[in-house]
């Protein structure tokens, strides 16, 4: 599907394909028991992002300009080397769901044991995000807020300049 997206010149089809891709990965998240991530992926990736991309297409054009370029060897080598390094690094990672992995031994046992008692909330994800990691979640919310304000300002300012 990624190759299809790369090869296509019709941007409308590209947007639709990436929406479908988001929906499929939402399905993948469900099978990996990450239902809340799947909610987000389906709603943002499959829904809102697709609509916004279509909005962008309405603002610009639906055909990609064909740019003829020579084969650039240095960037290709850099990309392949980085990819190989990243894959090599994954060999050091503990295997998926390994109970001996370090991530399950630092503060996690304390959170799981003491969290539901201290917060009265059985959902681990909720109380870690909102209580133990309250600062981080506040930062995330600020990021989203800033993104909204940024888009508003950019589009409003661009429109005003065009009106002048």
């Amino acid at each position: 599907m990624a190759l299809g997206i790369l090869h296509m010149r019709n941007l409308f089809a590209v947007v639709m394909l990436s929406g479908i891709y988001s929906l499929i990965s939402a399905g993948l998240f469900v099978t990996m028991d990450a239902v809340d991530v799947a909610f987000t992926e389906a709603a943002v990736g499959g829904g809102i992002a697709t609509v916004l991309m279509l909005g962008t297409l309405a603002l610009t054009t639906t055909r990609e300009k064909f740019v003829k370029s020579d084969l650039q060897i240095v960037p290709l080598v850099i990309v392949i080397a980085t990819g190989a390094l990243l894959i090599y690094a994954t060999f050091d990672m503990p295997s998926f769901g390994d109970p001996a992995a370090p991530i399950h031994h630092h503060v996690v046992p304390r959170y799981i044991e003491e969290g539901p008692v201290r917060t009265g909330i059985p959902n681990v994800v909720t109380f870690v995000l909102a209580s133990y990691r309250g600062y981080d979640t506040m930062g995330e919310l600020t990021v989203i807020f800033t993104a909204g304000v940024g888009v508003m300002l950019l589009l409003a300012l661009a429109g005003r300049r065009r009106d002048d």
């Binding site: 909005g55 962008t56 917060t119 989203i144 807020f145 993104a147 888009v151």
Partner: peptide
């Protein structure tokens, strides 16, 4: 946690709608 999550929900929903409106206006 209830109040904080409510705040997150309100801001996220409103931001999504705001971005959408901005695109439509443009």
């Amino acid at each position: 946690i209830f109040l904080v999550e409510l705040g997150v929900g309100i801001t996220v929903a409103a931001t999504m709608v705001t971005i959408f409106f901005a695109f439509v206006d443009q």
